[in-house]
Simulated assay, not measured.
Amino acid sequence: MIRRFGEPVESGRRYVRRPGIYALLVQGDAVLLTFQEEPKPEFQLPGGGIDPGEQPMAALHREVLEETGWRIAPLRRLGAFRRFTYMPEYDLWAEKLCTVVLARPVRRLGPPSEPGHSAVWLGAEEAPGLLGNQGDRHFAARHLLGAT
């Protein structure tokens, strides 16, 4: 069973399943996050949805590059979680199935190409508490701080 974070499921609401993959990008005692300005300003683990027919690792590389401007080297899968949420950019209610991968930033190719995203380096101790969703916070705290 995959752990659920966030808002409770609303009875009678139809949710569209959205698989996604996200990276905890660690370099020394720093973490590379993306700051998304809209629909609400928040720090996030870089990553996103896996397009139909796309392989998860290809999606991870694509999404991280779009949101941070960095190439990465995936190291290992940390786990998965799900959350039920409204996605205003797609005007849909989604059951997000989120896989989290530990990865290493390898090379900065330029600024993020995804509009409204900024690449931000934060200290490993402060990063988990600033992440915008509970699932991201859980995996970052568990890996970076040894929290459960």
Results as ranks from 00 to 15, higher is better:
residue 14 R to M: 11
residue 15 Y to T: 04
residue 15 Y to S: 02
residue 15 Y to F: 11
residue 15 Y to D: 07
residue 16 V to E: 13
residue 17 R to W: 15
residue 19 P to D: 00
residue 19 P to W: 05
residue 20 G to R: 04
residue 20 G to T: 04
residue 20 G to K: 02
residue 20 G to P: 00
residue 21 I to C: 06
residue 21 I to P: 01
residue 21 I to Y: 10
residue 22 Y to P: 06
residue 22 Y to K: 03
residue 22 Y to T: 03
residue 22 Y to V: 01
residue 22 Y to M: 03
residue 22 Y to E: 09
residue 23 A to T: 00
residue 24 L to Q: 02
residue 25 L to S: 06
residue 25 L to D: 09
residue 25 L to E: 06
residue 25 L to R: 06
residue 25 L to Y: 05
residue 26 V to Y: 08
residue 26 V to L: 14
residue 27 Q to W: 13
residue 28 G to K: 02
residue 28 G to E: 09
residue 29 D to G: 12
residue 29 D to N: 13
residue 30 A to K: 12
residue 30 A to G: 02
residue 31 V to G: 07
residue 31 V to N: 02
residue 32 L to S: 08
residue 32 L to V: 09
residue 33 L to I: 03
residue 33 L to K: 01
residue 34 T to V: 12
residue 34 T to C: 07
residue 35 F to D: 10
residue 35 F to E: 13
residue 36 Q to E: 15
residue 36 Q to T: 12
residue 36 Q to G: 11
residue 37 E to P: 09
residue 37 E to D: 14
residue 37 E to A: 15
residue 38 E to A: 14
residue 38 E to Q: 11
residue 39 P to L: 05
residue 39 P to G: 02
residue 39 P to E: 05
residue 39 P to Y: 05
residue 39 P to T: 09
residue 40 K to S: 12
residue 41 P to C: 11
residue 41 P to N: 00
residue 42 E to A: 14
residue 43 F to V: 01
residue 44 Q to C: 10
residue 44 Q to V: 13
residue 46 P to K: 13
residue 46 P to H: 00
residue 48 G to I: 03
residue 48 G to W: 03
residue 48 G to S: 07
residue 49 G to F: 11
residue 50 I to N: 03
residue 50 I to K: 07
residue 50 I to D: 02
residue 50 I to F: 01
residue 51 D to M: 14
residue 51 D to L: 15
residue 52 P to W: 02
residue 53 G to D: 06
residue 53 G to E: 04
residue 53 G to R: 07
residue 54 E to W: 05
residue 54 E to V: 08
residue 54 E to C: 07
residue 54 E to M: 14
residue 55 Q to P: 00
residue 56 P to N: 04
residue 57 M to L: 15
residue 57 M to W: 13
residue 58 A to P: 06
residue 59 A to S: 14
residue 59 A to F: 09
residue 59 A to Q: 06
residue 60 L to D: 09
residue 61 H to G: 05
residue 61 H to S: 10
residue 61 H to F: 14
residue 62 R to P: 03
residue 62 R to K: 14
residue 62 R to M: 02
residue 63 E to H: 12
residue 63 E to R: 15
residue 64 V to M: 09
residue 64 V to S: 00
residue 65 L to E: 13
residue 65 L to D: 06
residue 65 L to Y: 15
residue 65 L to S: 10
residue 66 E to L: 13
residue 67 E to S: 12
residue 67 E to M: 13
residue 67 E to V: 07
residue 68 T to N: 01
residue 68 T to Y: 13
residue 69 G to Q: 11
residue 69 G to A: 08
residue 69 G to V: 00
residue 70 W to M: 05
residue 70 W to L: 01
residue 71 R to T: 14
residue 71 R to C: 12
residue 71 R to E: 15
residue 72 I to Y: 00
residue 72 I to H: 06
residue 72 I to S: 10
residue 73 A to T: 12
residue 73 A to L: 14
residue 74 P to G: 13
residue 75 L to S: 07
residue 75 L to G: 08
residue 75 L to C: 11
residue 77 R to L: 08
residue 77 R to I: 06
residue 77 R to W: 06
residue 78 L to N: 08
residue 78 L to V: 00
residue 78 L to Q: 05
residue 79 G to K: 06
residue 79 G to E: 06
residue 80 A to I: 09
residue 81 F to M: 01
residue 81 F to V: 09
residue 81 F to W: 10
residue 81 F to E: 01
residue 82 R to Q: 10
residue 82 R to V: 15
residue 82 R to G: 07
residue 84 F to A: 15
residue 84 F to K: 09
residue 85 T to L: 12
residue 86 Y to R: 07
residue 86 Y to S: 03
residue 86 Y to D: 07
residue 86 Y to M: 04
